[in-house]
Design a protein around this nucleic acid. Sequence first.
RNA 1: UGUCUUGUGGUGUAAUGGUAGCACAACAGUUUUUGGUACUGUUUGUCCUGGUUCGAGUCCGGGCAAGACAACCA
Length: 566
Amino acid sequence: MEEQIANTSEVKEESKNFIEQFVEEDLRENKNGGRIQTRFPPEPNGYLHIGHAKAICLDFGIAKKYGGICNLRFDDTNPVKEDVEYVDSIQEDIKWLGFQWAGIYYASDYFEQLHELAIRFIKEGKAYVDEQTAEEIASQKGTPTIPGTESPFRNRPIEENLKLFEQMSSGEIPDGKMVLRAKIDMSSPNMHFRDPIIYRIITSHPHHRTGNKWKVYPMYDFAHGQSDYFEGVTHSLCTLEFEVHRPLYNWFIDQFAGTDYRPRQIEFNRLNITYTVMSKRKMLQLVNEGIVRGWDDPRMPTICGLRRRGYTPASIHNFIKTIGYTKYDGLIDVSLLEHAVRDDLNANATRVSAVLDPIRLVLTNYPENQEETMVAINNPEREEDGTHEIQFSRELYIERDDFMEEAPKKYFRLTPGKEVRLKNAYIIRCTGCDKDTEGNITTVYAEYDPLTRSGMPDSNRKVKGTIHWVSVRHAIDAEVRLYDRLFVVENLQEEKDRDFHEMLNPNSLTVTTAKVEPWLSHAKPLDHFQFQRIGYFNVDPDSKPGALVFNRTVSLKDSWQKELKK
RNA sequence: UGUCUUGUGGUGUAAUGGUAGCACAACAGUUUUUGGUACUGUUUGUCCUGGUUCGAGUCCGGGCAAGACAACCA
């Protein structure tokens, strides 16, 4: 009992981000009756990426933390770009990240209400039908520093607006011939108030949910805030580029809502990562042009790409926790992401042996037909994960990098005359090597010390280096896909004038055949492993029995490589 | 020459008028049957300039810089 006293006061309270502070303020003032409700509002026109994961963690996280709910709402107001393919993948990715929405909604659920609202706006003289072309409307819009001019149709009678909007809605008017605009202020310093278009005609594309029922569709500004209001959202969290929309968001709601409750839009910084594109348009281009193998290519920053690459939900959560939410539009170093996945996989991935660039090592004093079974610890970070068996014999594969005929003094691996430890096996001394006519090493020779098998007293002898190996006789082949960053430019956004094709890394994918221990033959797609001394790998869904395929998630940190670069 | 927003080590993020801290990165070292992990240490920071205050990263004024906004996209 007495021991409990200490520590409680020492626990450092985690600092809150500015959004949590706003939410707590609202709660303190009992806004909206103390209710908390958020939503994640993706447009189903592409796959979710790591930037969306940041928004998802916030939307669902805030709801959970403050005892509220979070809905999934598809912002499907533009049938030209949207598709059910995306609706399905988005749900899968959110679940994979570990979140569950309270309700699932679509902006299209509100098309009826939105349409009625538009009619109400017309009747109240707050909206009009404009018959000008897109170009004419654009030219009248002015610029951020020059006020716009009013449309010649701005003051047509309410009855006429009503009739024309009815014709737009019934399909009598072809696409692009008319739009419905809110009548606000053509000289507003906020461009979004210059009579924004709130409804346009789309008859060319059926909607993925409502089919051909609707001929007119609401624009984002007329749909998003209203949907939030209809649904009961209290905190509408979005990225910085919607900051300028907020006054309009509020204005629209003020035109029709009661005083009982108000949703509040709060904006945070979107995620930018070095050497990475984060725009749906560019990603679509990468996919469509075959630069990558699909949305789930392990080089893509999509959720499904990261999953296939071997990232775990926990690693993504931790990454997002690290980067935080602010209003500063920065650029996150990709090493933070890599650290997050190394950290998780170090604690959880089973260690195995794989030789990516094999050369043959012959232990000349080891009996020809002898075999031994060695014990390999599955994870030194977690003893309860147990061990598995590996086979040892006279001929082994080792990494080409782990032998040098003439080595610098800091080289701790195999070199003639020197000792090295074979992981989980014996200490050996190198005696020489064979080379082909071009001078390439073909075989390395060594003698093993029979008294130094792992577990024997002599095995405790100090040896500077330890290398991994697989038995030639037992090893199985596996395809290994090595990934590098997709782009060679650190800040893609800074290179606005350059075509992104010329910034692609030509070596972002290297495919090789590795020799791996036979214990891996039963590995299943998405299983994570650490290839000892090399990196973290997972099994690609392309993998089949007898034809294993691994993806390199991320390499291990390599201080020898750093030493070499000096 | 508009409106809105943002400036804290190389990167990101804390400090809510009271010792500028944390993570990553970098560097040096200890431990190690992974040149991994873990641990220790080091380097580097409040955009500038006035003011208020006993005290300013924080509040106020003026600069400077960066970003967003001119789609019948979201």
